[in-house]
Nucleic acid binder design. Sequence first.
RNA 1: GGACAGGUGCCCGAGUGGUUAAAGGGGACGGACUGUAAAUCCGUUGGCUUAGCCUACGUUGGUUCAAAUCCAACCCUGUCCA
Length: 416
Amino acid sequence: MSTYKSDFLKVLAERGFIHQVSEPDQLDQLAASRPITAYIGFDCTAASLHIGSLLPIMMLYWMQQTGHRPIALMGGGTTRVGDPSGKDESRKILTDEQINQNLTGIRAVFSKFLKFEDAGGSAIMANNADWLNGLNYIDFLRDVGRHFSVNRMLSFDSVKMRLERQHELSFLEFNYMILQAYDFVELHKRYACDLQMGGSDQWGNIVNGIDLGRRMENAQLFALTAPLITTASGAKMGKTAAGAVWLDANLVSPYEYWQFWRNTEDGDVVRFLKLFTILPLAEIERLGSLKGQDINEAKKVLATEATAMVHGRDTADRAAETARQTFEEGAAAATLPTIEIPSAELAAGIGVLVAFQRAGLVASTSDARRQVKGGGLRVNDAAVSDERMTLDASALIDGAIKLSLGRKRHVLLKSV
RNA sequence: GGACAGGUGCCCGAGUGGUUAAAGGGGACGGACUGUAAAUCCGUUGGCUUAGCCUACGUUGGUUCAAAUCCAACCCUGUCCA
């Protein structure tokens, strides 16, 4: 498996990033002989990226670490159309303003992993709006469209599946692969980009780009895809009760982010350590040999290391310490997520149901009521049995009231 | 443009006049058991000022004591025909 000569492919292979590679020997040779340039495309439909994008980001990270040049391509142009592959969810057409706003948010995430040109590094951030927005339909058809054979496009799995199941495939969607192929060629022209990476579902689209590159530019381009990551029990990664696990500290606090990784299933620990941390493989192997209860040590390392990648070492250590105090000492660590309540309001007394709702632990007071019935709510570690209970200043311990939902989720209520 | 089929809660999917906040499953959350794991079992799964009230079965109107269920128009989706 890791018969690769280039550091780049060797590292990716050893860590489990590789699902498929086109012309592996040739690419390996190229990467061993000179720095190569590769890109991955990202949607900018949201203001931040979530765990799902972490894998591709890590691929770009390793690329830069092994001496190559990564390009993060923002889908500013393709987002304007809206990715049609997501079923019938109302494809919100985002305004250019929103897209640009999202771009800056996403860029902030990337800068944690990659050194961009303006920061003295080699990484490039590109936006396909730069070349897609100005396209002229007829010109595009003549220059690019003529290289696409519909016969061949129809043979792609993604298309074939739709046709066989007699599901509609819109023309827009049919064109999506052409635009993506064009992106690849455009990046090759602009930045001498050699390689496109992506999730395994992108294989067909990437291969299209390779094909177009050969026809239009007589260029040899390459494809590399990563496996689809699911948890050991088969679920898609990255969703929790609160929704997506975002990489932005304002959307998901570093403590919660740490907790996400801490709660990894046993069977996933080693795989995740390889993919989502930069620990040496020897260290990962040692952690992976831990059995039974001891595997929790490995999970803590995973959590701290993964959090450090996104939020920084200090923040990660603090999250680990908060968790230690909360779970191992049963104390109310002062660094738990906190919400503030005006002291006057607290003095007047605030209903437990409302308090939990404000803390974001329950969605509604009805939800809170249900949780009380199920014995899921605790105030200062004492179960709430009366939904009419009110909290006031007398419940403060060291200036805070600890609200808990279940065993794991805690929020401090502080009076201001 | 025409002919069919269909639009139900987070998702899938039953339900064809009243006991339906809507079967069943999935997911999610809580409880028990554990190791902040998995598996398993139990409970919950629209909102509110909760022994009550309000809102909900594509939209809007109508029939009826009573509608997710019947009628009409419209919107949307799929299949087939032009």
